[in-house]
């Protein structure tokens, strides 16, 4: 059970049972859907951006404990942050998930530029790395937030 205890930490189960910032935001907040075709998980990220800042964020959809807890913690950490700050957090979280940007040569860039970012409760998700299939669960909301930011930034150009 040791490995499972490492995965299912109490803080993760708490966010799963009582997800923070769950719900919807009305227009003009941006709505973006993400899917994990492997298990059918679905996340809907609503972000209200104001002056380059994430004023509000809500999460809809359904999924496993890892995807739901990760989404819930994500909303807590990025709410109130500027887009630039949020992008740094996203970057740091993905590095914790062992996902690094790839250089053109195909090699991983392994020197972190964001190692000083404090991920707080999100550190509890580190146990996920031992279960490669679950990394997709943990990163689903994050990828959807990235897509959301891209869509908003591109349409406002």
């Amino acid at each position: 059970m040791a490995a499972l205890d490492d995965l299912y930490k109490e803080i993760i189960l708490d966010h799963y049972r009582s997800p923070r910032n769950q719900g919807e935001l009305d227009h003009p907040a941006h709505r973006c859907e993400g899917f994990n075709p492997l298990c059918g998980d679905e996340v809907i990220v609503y972000v209200a951006l104001n002056d380059g800042k994430i004023d509000d964020i809500k999460i809809g959809g359904q999924g496993c404990s890892i995807s739901q807890a990760s989404a819930s913690m994500m909303t807590e950490i990025v709410k109130g942050k500027s887009i630039e700050e949020a992008e740094l957090v996203i970057h740091a979280f993905k590095e914790m998930m062992d996902i690094y940007e790839t250089e053109l040569s195909g090699n991983k860039k392994i020197e972190s530029t964001v190692s000083d970012i404090d991920l707080g409760d999100l550190e509890a998700l580190q146990g996920v790395v031992k279960y490669p299939v679950r990394i997709k669960c943990a990163t689903l909301a994050w990828n959807t937030l990235t897509q959301s930011i891209d869509e908003v930034t591109n349409t406002s150009l």
Partner: peptide
Amino acid sequence: GAHPHDIAQILDE
């Protein structure tokens, strides 16, 4: 109330 993906993971243990 456990998600199937979590159930499958725990059973895999």
